[in-house]
Structures are given as C-alpha cells and as structure tokens.
Simulated assay, not measured.
Amino acid sequence: MTLLDFSLYQILAIALVFVWTGFVRTGLGFGGAALGLPLMLFIHNNPLLWLPIIGVHLLFFSGLTLFNRLHNVDWPYLRASAVYIIPAAFVGIFGLLNLPVLWLNGFIYSVTLFYGFTWMLNRGIQSRHVWADRALLMLGGYVAGISLTGAPLMVAVYMRNVSKDKLRDTLFILWFTLVSIKMTTFIALSVDLHFLTALALLPIAAIGHIAGLKTHDTIMRNDLMFKRWIGGGLVTVSLLGLWQLYSQFVQDFMKSFSLI
C-alpha cells in the first residue's frame, strides 16, 4: 500500500499525524510511536503498515540528532539495561508478526489507554527497587518489540539512572538499537518496509522534528502540564479505538454465528 491508495482527506490526516510524531519524538525525547500509532490505526488498522515507516523515520532522525552527540550518551547504563530490554524485544517482534491484527490493535490501544490515564492524572510510572527496574525494562522491551510503544515504561527507569543532561541522547541510542533490530527482522522475513512511503513522509515528519528540537527545553520546563493535556487526548483516542474494535469483534462474531 502507498499514499496513492488513500483519499485526499486521509493523506492530509497522515501528514498531520507524522508532523505530530516528529514533534513528540524530539520535543519529549520519546513517545513518537506511542502518541502517533493509535491515530494512524484510525486511518488504516494494520500496524505492519505503519511500524516500518515509523522505524525508517526514527532511524533517520535519531541518527541525525546523534551525529555529534555520541559523547553525551550514558554508555555504561545503556549496556547494563540492554541485557533486559533486547531479549524481551525479540519476543515482542515475534508476537507482532504472528498475532491477529485485532489482538495487536487491542493491545496497542490498551497500552496507550494506560499511558493516557497515568499522564492525565499525574501518576507517573515509578520504580524504587532493582527488581522493579528490571521488570519495567523487560516489559518496555516487549511492548517496544510488538508495537514500538514501550518508551514510557523504559523512560521511567532511565530517568532515575541517567542524568537529565544525558537522558535524551541515551534514549535515542536505545531507540536506534531497538528499531534496527526490528527492521533487520522485517528484512530477514521479507516484510514490506513501505520504504517509498516512508521517504515521501520524511519531509513532513521533519517539520515536527525541527519544531520539537526548538521547543524541547520549554516542554521540559512544563512537562507536567504538557503530559496532562496529552494524557487526556490519549484516553479519548484509546477509548474510541477500543470501542471500534469491540464493534468489529461483535459484527464478526455475529456473522460467523449466522453461518453455523
């Protein structure tokens, strides 16, 4: 599927969503997929269309941002945490490639609904013990593997263990690594990367990317207010998405029941 397969209104909606994901990715330093994928699923409900495109963009923009920033990465903690994240990510990728689309979308909307409530109610994901850190890293790795939306879970741990001035650059290296693994798996299994569509959307996402870079410091100073507004939006989108999936499930069930 390419952009030409969508209507004009859908193309405009896709453009706005990718501006948004680019903005969030650099404005917060994480969450582009978590805050963008649920919206994309309203336009086309197959995650395997959007995830390779998001992956291409993330590799490009994170690589561009980190070109002169590798000295500002907390490499020791990155290596220590990767032991828990990467194996779980492989399990998540396996689920992405084998689970039915309805289940995948339900999982994505449910995870996003959880994020939305925690942000809207200012109930951040917290960990005060080493075992809890490891559990969050593994869970975040799994969610990232299955949907690229595991960032908030891992960020909760990274924020306690990485200094604020190195946090965004360290996270970008983590995202780059996880997406590289996912994209390599896609290529090995002949999954369509929708590369031309990703290239066509690259300039659109760049608008949000640049805006996010310019407003990053402002967002960080007003982090709680920003997340509360975003949380409310995520709750709304996720509930609508889950209702849509429920309606589809009921329709499919009734159709199958009538055939018996």
Results as ranks from 00 to 15, higher is better:
residue 105 N to H: 03
residue 248 Q to A: 10
residue 250 V to N: 08
residue 60 F to E: 14
residue 233 G to F: 02
residue 126 Q to K: 15
residue 117 F to M: 05
residue 220 M to S: 15
residue 166 K to Q: 06
residue 168 R to G: 12
residue 189 L to G: 11
residue 18 F to H: 02
residue 6 F to A: 04
residue 1 M to C: 09
residue 42 F to T: 09
residue 175 W to A: 15
residue 39 L to H: 05
residue 230 I to L: 13
residue 90 F to A: 14
residue 94 F to K: 14
residue 119 W to T: 14
residue 146 I to D: 02
residue 152 P to N: 05
residue 134 R to L: 08
residue 105 N to A: 04
residue 27 G to L: 03
residue 108 I to T: 02
residue 28 L to K: 07
residue 173 I to G: 07
residue 235 V to Q: 06
residue 226 F to I: 03
residue 41 L to H: 03
residue 138 M to F: 07
residue 88 A to C: 06
residue 143 V to D: 05
residue 192 D to S: 12
residue 207 I to P: 01
residue 210 I to C: 06
residue 103 W to T: 15
residue 227 K to H: 07
residue 241 G to F: 01
residue 33 A to I: 08
residue 240 L to M: 03
residue 138 M to P: 08
residue 129 H to Y: 11
residue 200 A to L: 11
residue 87 P to F: 00
residue 135 A to L: 12
residue 7 S to C: 07
residue 214 K to Q: 14
residue 87 P to H: 00
residue 233 G to R: 04
residue 180 S to M: 10
residue 212 G to A: 07
residue 82 A to G: 07
residue 66 L to R: 04
residue 197 T to V: 10
residue 160 R to W: 05
residue 82 A to E: 09
residue 129 H to D: 13
residue 203 P to Q: 00
residue 62 S to M: 15
residue 225 M to D: 14
residue 122 N to Y: 13
residue 55 G to T: 02
residue 230 I to G: 05
residue 196 L to P: 14
residue 145 G to R: 01
residue 220 M to P: 13
residue 215 T to C: 12
residue 54 I to E: 08
residue 223 D to I: 13
residue 163 S to F: 07
residue 169 D to L: 01
residue 236 T to E: 08
residue 54 I to N: 06
residue 187 I to K: 10
residue 50 W to E: 02
residue 234 L to H: 07
residue 58 L to S: 13
residue 229 W to C: 10
residue 172 F to I: 08
residue 106 G to T: 04
residue 256 S to A: 12
residue 230 I to H: 06
residue 40 M to V: 08
residue 183 M to P: 01
residue 157 V to C: 03
residue 228 R to L: 03
residue 194 H to T: 03
residue 82 A to T: 10
residue 53 I to D: 08
residue 4 L to R: 11
residue 191 V to S: 09
residue 149 T to F: 04
residue 113 L to H: 03
residue 80 A to W: 09
residue 156 A to E: 00
residue 151 A to S: 11
residue 242 L to Q: 01
residue 202 L to M: 02
residue 30 F to C: 05
residue 180 S to D: 14
residue 230 I to Q: 06
residue 196 L to D: 14
residue 26 T to W: 10
residue 253 F to E: 12
residue 162 V to A: 02
residue 24 V to L: 01
residue 3 L to F: 03
residue 120 M to V: 11
